[in-house]
Each structure stands twice: as C-alpha cells, then as structure tokens.
C-alpha cells in the first residue's frame, strides 16, 4: 500500500516527528511504500542541517536523512512555511527538498492513505 505522511511540528519540542519516523520505518518494514513525507507548519524545522542535539540524544534530522537515503524517500519541505521560518537550500539537510504545497495535495491524491502527525 502507498502511504503519505504529513508532519506539522518541529523536532524535539513535540513528539510528532518521532512518531512519524517510527510509523514510516514500521510501514517500510512491512513492505509498504512511503510515497512522500511532507513537512509543514513548524515541521519544516525537521529539515535544518544546523540542528545539533546533545550526543546522548537521538538526531531527528539525520535520522530522516538516513531513512531517505536507505529507502529513496521523498522528503518535501513546504517552501512558504520554510521561508517564514528561515529554512532555505543553504541550511537544508541531505535528502530533503523544498517545494510547493501542491506536493502535499498530490501526495494526498496519489497515496492510498495520508497520515498527519502534529500537536
């Protein structure tokens, strides 16, 4: 089955990104396809390459980058939401790309299920 996922909150402050990550990983393990992960609202902050958590904490950003690399995931950051919050190509972590809101709608159309994680 084709899933799409939306994340509306940034890393660390809320559990949304963690829950979404574990959901995606479990879906991939079960042989499902993750059609796209779309980052919206403060969720765009999940794509910041400037993120530097303490060493004994999980690195939410690199974890997404790694999952994207391993499974060829399409991690899309909303351009309008990103510009509002200072996320641009210069500080975009590997595996993420910045694009329009149309990518969210398209994911909703193409995927069998769209799951939203937020506050």
């Amino acid at each position: 089955m084709k899933f799409a996922v939306t994340i509306n909150e940034g890393p660390y402050q809320h559990q949304a990104s963690d829950s979404a990550y574990l959901f995606c990983r479990a879906a991939l393990e079960k042989g499902h396809e993750i059609r796209r992960v779309f980052f919206y609202n403060d969720g765009v902050n999940n794509a910041s390459s400037l993120t530097e958590p303490p060493q004994d904490d999980r690195n939410i950003v690199t974890r997404w980058s790694k999952l994207a690399e391993d499974h060829k995931l399409d991690l899309v950051v909303c351009v309008a939401a990103a510009l509002r919050r200072g996320i641009r190509d210069e500080n975009l972590a590997p595996g993420f790309r910045i694009s329009g809101l149309g990518q969210l709608v398209e994911a909703g159309i193409e995927a069998d299920r769209l799951v939203t994680f937020g506050d």
């Binding site: 509306n8 609202n41 149309g102 969210l104 709608v105 909703g108």
Partner: peptide
Amino acid sequence: TIYALESLEVVLITAAFDQ
C-alpha cells in the same frame, strides 16, 4: 497559533488541483 492560516493556504492549493 498559525494553524488556521496555514490550513487555509492548503485549502486554496487543493482547490487549484480541482479536488
């Protein structure tokens, strides 16, 4: 919070996709 405004932005785009 910004949710209402950013939700409205998605609504407008969704309409542009003729959904």
